[in-house]
Design a binder for these strands. Structure first.
Lengths: 245, 245
DNA sequence: CCTGCGTCCTGATTTAGATCAGTCCAGCCC
DNA sequence: GGGCTGGACTGATCTAAATCAGGACGCAGG
């Protein structure tokens, strides 16, 4: 494959959509100049904040969520290395969601002006970013389908499979399983279930020798069985070769 | 307000984010050259299709949905005049969702090449489109929260209020109510509920003099009461004056 | 050392919403 | 007119998941 894979997983991801030139890679690299570190648990972005910075995640896991007036929390998505996060907080007047690191995180800060600058210098990059945002939207949509129309078991399995697929794309997972820093409470908030029920579902999955979720690890005991159970579409995140040359 | 409001509701929407120049308006207008008409019920875009066309909706209502292997349907979002639809079907190899007109629809067809062309000529437009896509994503997120963490009553009301807010922005609704071509079945598919249950919820809302859903119309009998019941954030779609000059 | 605290785990009970199985009514076609 | 069809509407029953109420383990901090 002739794609020059530069250092950042973000560049690699965009490169999977648009065949980027050296100049474009250079412009992309310039977006990574402000590297920052966040400890686990300290919100990077919060509802109502008007700081207007976004981040490209280099290492660690974060989650985006919203809190309802009643105190209930819904996690919208998790971000893993290579993901862009908080774009809406720079395009909108104020952030409409919270972003919390689940582990220690390193990320590059991107300001609105940096991004607009980069677009002006190379409009192809704008298309690539648009694609990345659309891909994120597609995942939120799949998450919506999950919560709206699948029962707790299918939902849990579909979610853990999707996470696995995403991690495989950045080399952090295999068909055997992956390291996963999520507690059952966090998982429950993402799945729209109670923690108690998530616990029962995980027990059933373990007893049926399908999946083991334990000690910060997800182990696929029967990958094919899981794919069938959750009606998981193996193709859906697949991206084989740039669409735009 | 000094924004030159050109004919299309789409241009008006983008103009609310970026202060567009005459040249930019002209480029935008050129995107509207292929006007097409679709009858109600005939899918404009369907899962797996690789035609790669998107549309800017000029009149009528459409819905985007996915069908699960079991036959269950989840409606992801409705689009109303001024909305961009099917962007993911031009950026991805194949469409990942279906789009069905709920009424007779007129729309402008946009090809991938048109869009990339327009971005090259004016990168500011790219930022504006990115903003529009992000706004759509924010709505999908709100929809996710709705389904994940609100009960049937709050969920229904929140949804109908949001639709109202969107329609007000394009002059198709007021605080009194709006014309709404949705059947209770369609509403159920959007809310992730059964049609039977939606019917019961609507009856309760009517009996409590909060909202009347009947004969293709939504009437807010007690707007403030509804906002309170659904914990609806009146500011969330609000956009007062362009952010980017 | 004991005191918390967080995570995992469980049985008993309750409830929101699904499913089943219809009725009623308006519009449409022959 | 009679026979359809599709939407709105309803009572009875069932069930998935929530909630309540706890126990057990590990480990960080005084």
């Amino acid at each position: 494959m002739p794609i020059p894979v530069q250092e950042s997983p973000f560049a690699r991801k965009l490169g999977a959509y648009v065949a980027l030139t050296d100049t474009e890679f250079a412009i992309l690299a310039a977006l990574h100049k402000r590297r920052r570190i966040f400890p686990a648990g300290q919100d990077m972005i919060y509802q109502g904040q008007s700081v207007r910075a976004a981040y490209i995640l280099a290492s660690g896991w974060v989650c985006s969520y919203k809190i309802l007036p009643g105190g209930a929390r819904q996690i919208v998505d998790f971000q893993i290395p290579g993901d862009f996060l908080g774009l809406r907080s720079i395009l909108f007047r104020a952030a409409d969601h919270n972003v919390e690191p689940l582990t220690r995180v390193t990320a590059s800060e991107v300001l609105a002006s940096d991004l607009i600058d980069a677009f002006t210098r190379t409009p192809r990059l704008a298309t690539a970013v648009l694609w990345a945002v659309s891909r994120d939207e597609a995942m939120v949509v799949e998450h919506l389908i999950n919560i709206g129309r699948r029962d707790a078991m299918q939902r849990t399995v579909h979610f853990l499979l999707e996470l696995g697929a995403r991690l495989m794309l950045v080399g952090l997972g295999t068909k055997e399983g992956y390291a996963c820093p999520l507690s059952q409470y966090v998982l429950a908030d993402a799945l729209g279930l109670s923690a108690v029920h998530v616990n029962r579902i995980l027990r059933q999955l373990r007893e049926r020798h399908l999946l083991t979720f334990r000690n910060g690890k997800v182990i696929f005991d029967d990958f094919d069985g899981l794919v069938e159970l959750a009606e998981f579409d193996l193709a859906y995140l697949d991206q084989s070769g740039p669409l735009l040359r």
